[in-house]
Design a protein around this nucleic acid. Sequence first.
DNA 1: CCGCGAATTGTAAACGTTTACATAACGTGT
DNA 2: ACACGTTATGTAAACGTTTACAATTCGCGG
Lengths: 342, 342
Amino acid sequence: MSIKEVARIAGVSTATVSRYLNSPEHVREKTRKKVQEAIRSTGYAPNTLARNFRRGKTSLVVVVLPSVGDPFFEGVMRGIWRVADAEGYSILIRETQFNTHEFDDYSEIVFSKQADGIILLASTSPFTSGPAERAGHGDRLPPIVIGCETVAPQLSQFPSVRVDNAAAAAEATAHLVQLGHRRIGFIAGLQASLLTRDREQGYRQAMAEAGLPVADEWIVEGRQTLDGARAAARQLLALSPRPTAIFCANDEMAMGAMHEIRRAGLRIPQDISVIGFDDIRYAEILDPPLTTVAQPTEEIGEHTMRRLCRAIDGGDIGAEPEIVPHRLVVRESTAAPPADES
Amino acid sequence: MSIKEVARIAGVSTATVSRYLNSPEHVREKTRKKVQEAIRSTGYAPNTLARNFRRGKTSLVVVVLPSVGDPFFEGVMRGIWRVADAEGYSILIRETQFNTHEFDDYSEIVFSKQADGIILLASTSPFTSGPAERAGHGDRLPPIVIGCETVAPQLSQFPSVRVDNAAAAAEATAHLVQLGHRRIGFIAGLQASLLTRDREQGYRQAMAEAGLPVADEWIVEGRQTLDGARAAARQLLALSPRPTAIFCANDEMAMGAMHEIRRAGLRIPQDISVIGFDDIRYAEILDPPLTTVAQPTEEIGEHTMRRLCRAIDGGDIGAEPEIVPHRLVVRESTAAPPADES
DNA sequence: CCGCGAATTGTAAACGTTTACATAACGTGT
DNA sequence: ACACGTTATGTAAACGTTTACAATTCGCGG
């Protein structure tokens, strides 16, 4: 059941069948009928493999993210899919599980035509050979767009779409400062994640601007996971004097931290304030609802994918990061510190 | 930069280059060196598109699930990936967003060689033409394995891997009954989801076995979402007398329900018990930690994918569902009903 | 140095499309 | 009915691999 067989049965050439499939308006009504009938009777289905091969296009895009099942990526993926569906792309997902992979591994995907382009929602380690060397072989830069993550200097030739993590984190920190907090802990992500490092930097900057010192022990790594954050929170709570507020580099870790705070018999926000980042869908149903920084996730996904499509089509999409707006969402997990602390 | 070019530079035939790529042990050391050098100098990367076309294999598997970002699927995907990586498959994800799609749309993916097989983690509506008709064209049944979901009668020719949802739900219900609960509410999923319907049935069965009546208004649809569950919980809490326990068809909905219970000023489990299903990673850090039914998610993923691989390779994998063990995890969200209720 | 089996390499066809180009059929105005 | 421009169809090559089969080379015992 190939196009050939259909052509034979319909009594036309393979070219005509192909045209029927791809631009029916270019085949005469009468012929169309014949081909249609032949297809129906044979149960023919076009061979996508052959078609893609011939066209030199996979119609596939790889999305690399740290972890599926992370509620944050739901919105981003939704945005990506919306554009992908419209543009005829299917999405291949790779999970890094928070390991950083070589950049080269990703560009190889494109060069070996496993996919037409790549969206990086996770950080990568610097490349060994690098896109420059590839370019030396006559290839252009592979179509890669970075979403959410801050781009490493070595990747600065690739465009990105993200919020201003540092500014947003500074804003969140300022919110706590404004409430009267002086000792603010920070549960960081992984060192490998530039994005959470930016948030840490925003925190530091806001503290500095408020003229507040930052003790080394106030910053502890939460490894981007529930358990990591719980351990981090325990460390923070054991300090004396302990922080009156904790800024978590993302909501997932805030969830872990809140649990440990409750287990320690402390009340949120009366005894200690908590603020997160991302505004995942659980943020508002936590106890208490979590103050956090919202990102326009679907928009990030859409813009990232749209930009990638243009790159695949050979358009020049530049290398500037596109910064999308964030928004501080104040809920009930933050309040003034206990009276005896002010 | 095709195999031809490499062959020319290395001074060998294309066949030899191909062999170098696919079975280096069949090419002599000296030749290997030459080819290696030619590849290095040209920066050649094999064209996966052409290779797959020639082999008649996409090396792609589609996974259909209701929603990424659902923590439950994290483990299943992990299991799928583990096997996929070992077997050389990439995973294409389709999200249904809880819409049910035609089965035909999925089998078409295989027939048109967009992928070699399909894993269904979501329910589908019955097919219009059906695999039987396809088979009439000489095709065999498309390689499809169903995971987690209960298979619809029309799909009974396809194998599945899942827990015994009805039995597990009955067990969970019995746990509540044993604690002394008589009025137990049930927040159901979507009617389209057979899996949650099985859970509902298990609940009904356990109630019946305990000789307890089930009022119609105790069962309310939570639409599988946080918001749906919140609305459902509000309905349940407005009843008089209100249930002393609520069984949620999954943990996500339990999270929504717990939030509404707290908002109503009730304590869990003192005033009302809550039990979930799935044991997602958040279950144990909820306030209070959630009693729920754990599924071996990674195992489900692994077995599903393994079975699919065998089907793709042409093996006969039968059509029997494989039932994997579940486990009731008792935490602190369930307790005896308030004293005046017993 | 010859001959023989095994190991290695080369030749060329095939996979199912798409598409440039050539050819044929159509419809229109005269 | 003719010629012409337009539109529809056919012919055949090409895409980059893999692989059956044929041809060559190798190693080695005689």
